[in-house]
């Protein structure tokens, strides 16, 4: 492993922990506004963190590209979420 990659492993571990909690407690997140976009952003970051760790072991070029693509996707999803949130955050739901 290269110097500094321990921190990347720790980041991935924390990311996986958050992802696990999010999946286990998914009912809590279900009502969040535009939750899918937030989920895509989170998943993209998780992919990026995974690729960051794995690129030191195999397919450096490919995984490096995947990492940056995932970061780009996360940036897009997050930005799209922050733009869409102002419309109807936590409005009371009608009957049914």
């Amino acid at each position: 492993m290269e110097p500094g990659s321990e921190r990347e492993v720790l980041t991935l571990a924390l990311g996986i922990a958050i992802a696990v909690v999010s999946v286990v407690k998914r009912h809590v997140f279900r009502g969040l506004p535009r939750a899918r976009r937030l989920g895509i952003a989170g998943a993209s970051m998780l992919v990026a963190w995974t690729a960051t760790v794995l690129e030191h072991l195999v397919f450096f070029e490919v995984l490096d590209t995947v990492e940056h693509l995932a970061y780009f996707g996360a940036a897009l999803a997050l930005t799209s979420w922050i733009v869409s949130v102002p419309r109807g955050f936590a409005e009371p739901r009608g009957p049914g």
Partner: peptide, 11 residues
């Protein structure tokens, strides 16, 4: 690297 480590906490 330090900032990258902080991102999961922020998330």
């Amino acid at each position: 690297d330090a900032i990258a480590g902080a991102v999961p906490f922020l998330w």
